[in-house]
Design a binder for these strands. Sequence first.
DNA 1: TGAAAATATGAGTCTCGACTCATCTTGTCA
DNA 2: TGACAAGATGAGTCGAGACTCATATTTTCA
Lengths: 180, 180
Amino acid sequence: MRADALRNRTRILAAAEEVFAERGASASTEEVAARAGVAIGTVFRHFPTKRDLLAAIMKELRESLIVKAESLIAAGDEETAFFDYFTFLVERAAKVGTVVSLLAEEGTSIEPGEQVMALTQTFGSLLDAAQDAGAVRPEVRLDEVMALLTATTHGALAAAWSDDLRHRTVTLLLNALRTR
Amino acid sequence: MRADALRNRTRILAAAEEVFAERGASASTEEVAARAGVAIGTVFRHFPTKRDLLAAIMKELRESLIVKAESLIAAGDEETAFFDYFTFLVERAAKVGTVVSLLAEEGTSIEPGEQVMALTQTFGSLLDAAQDAGAVRPEVRLDEVMALLTATTHGALAAAWSDDLRHRTVTLLLNALRTR
DNA sequence: TGAAAATATGAGTCTCGACTCATCTTGTCA
DNA sequence: TGACAAGATGAGTCGAGACTCATATTTTCA
């Protein structure tokens, strides 16, 4: 790949990440091109469809989220890792709309399942560890946790909750999972 | 108003209710017109903008939801009315996407606040009653309940939960509000 | 250095959905 | 019943956003 092509590809990805985070997945490709300082044709040369562009970003995003989870696991506190990660994701989603798309694959459905699957697996490890450590009630199932996560994440974004409300709501929710 | 005008208005509203319930608020006005068996110009004669049409339906919807709440209040069981209503709304939202728009005013923001306000007030009465009866923990606040409702409602729709998952998730959630 | 191949450009095409309006149709009422 | 105002019609306008392609630039490497 030519040097300028690589440089542009990088710029486009960075711009797209910003734009989609700010405006959500419905932001226009034109805006991404403008932000990257590149003509729109160039964007489409690198990513034939908007979906491809979204998919590329989601992949990066997913990987960064998984890295975060791994560092929490590595830190070794099973009792709080699960809760911290949940909170982290909701927080992140409130700022970065793309996280929401990633979790629900709403509308723009990218590589059905694969993206979310990896995240779900990661969450599964955290949940298992927390349950083994006795921090989360044993009858709580992974799909329920993912459902709560999807819901909170969507709600926080769509209804624009205040920081305070988001915090109280997440706390309430996590207490429902905690061992009594 | 002429007789045929009234008839068409009624047909349009009925068609719009169906179409928006099935396809969400982003369904086209053309489809509404087709379903109503009417030309698109006629729809716009009765409702100058799509937003007006949506607003008319939301008004009906909101009123029907409030009627449901009132019947629950009238039934007199404060301990279960709150939980039943929450469950009812989520169930409804899973089928009727418009409920979700109504709750979050996402994108299509209609008469900012007014629509939701009435629902919130109604929910406030149910919550107060349930707390007085000792069924819901006293520290739970109304805005938290509305946040949970918005979230669940969005999640259920966006992620297409199964009936079983939805049921388990709502149960989990409501147990978080219940007196221990 | 000077092609040739790879890239970039951006005006233009296409589609879709909201909304308009000149023209035709129908309900109403004297 | 006839005239006219209210209403219906649907082709057409407008704007937005995804995507294309003929042409202009670069990069690269013999």
